[in-house]
Design a protein around this nucleic acid. Structure first.
Ligand SMILES: [Mn+2]
Ligand SMILES: [Mn+2]
Ligand SMILES: [Zn+2]
Ligand SMILES: [Zn+2]
Lengths: 139, 139
DNA sequence: TATCTTATTGAAATAATTACAACTTTATTA
DNA sequence: TAATAAAGTTGTAATTATTTCAATAAGATA
């Protein structure tokens, strides 16, 4: 059991969810590839190494992560949920040309404290779309 | 043909899409009920008065409106698209208790001009979730 | 180890949205 | 106004993402 496995087990335990081989692989994939993958992308990649993996398990695990506060859902596209291990406040930019999703910092406090004074805010999402610098250069 | 019908026909013509009875009813519903309805909500409401209405037509019309810049999609929930005739920049707050969606003003420029300097931004969405004042009062 | 709880699996169900072909309506032109 | 072309409407079927469910397997507890 290597050190990163041990670290993940601790994280799971601290958040009150069981650690299992599959969950550690899924979380490991997300931590290594911070590309805001879909459940299907995670499944397609991991099925190569875990032939018994079920897509239901991927969904179950991701839902467990989100509930435990270990991941967030990125719904920048209306036909697919993406997942992000970075649960800190930040915005997402999706390039309409290459499809890549970029993180960017957001000053949430500056957005509009006044109109929402009487609201309790639990989640904040900022989604921008357009063309990324790389795609702009390729005309 | 009353005056609002005439106005709608002009709007459609200006945006390069044909006017039809169904489209005017759908757009009329959205203009009157600015509740960010789903396609299904629009369909359920209008089928009472237009018995031949097809849900496909609702989707087709809404997609035409969005392409023509007459409406925007609000994907604050990952399992359903909502539609908004207010295409100006503003944020959306969804109450996790009563489900209502509230508009609020957003200073888009303050969010983060620096990190996205080299990006071309076409769409901006700000989605907050939490509890609305009414639901907070009802403890 | 025995036991209880939770995770995994695969199949089937659900639900939102789109594709398609036949038909109807709207816009254009004569 | 009548003929024609282009686009909108409809119902059904297909697609796709996600959930439900019951059986089985694995993890945690004592
Ligand atoms: Mn992110
Ligand atoms: Mn709105
Ligand atoms: Zn790009
Ligand atoms: Zn509420």
């Amino acid at each position: 059991m290597d050190v990163s496995t041990e670290v993940l087990m601790d994280i799971f335990k601290n958040r009150g969810i069981r650690s299992s081989y599959t969950r550690m692989r899924i979380m490991g994939y997300m931590a290594a590839n911070r590309n805001h993958p879909t459940a299907d992308e995670i499944y397609s990649r991991l099925i190569e190494e875990i032939p018994t993996l079920s897509k239901t398990t991927v969904y179950n695990s991701l839902n467990a992560f989100v509930e435990a506060g270990l991941a967030r859902v990125v719904t920048i596209e209306d036909n697919e949920a993406r997942y992000d291990v970075d649960v800190s406040d930040h915005g997402h930019f999706k390039c309409q040309s290459c499809g890549r999703i970029f993180d960017f910092p957001v000053d949430m406090d500056c957005i509009e404290p006044k109109a929402l004074e009487k609201f309790r805010i639990n989640k904040r999402d900022v989604y921008f779309k357009g063309i990324c610098p790389g795609c702009l250069d390729n005309k």
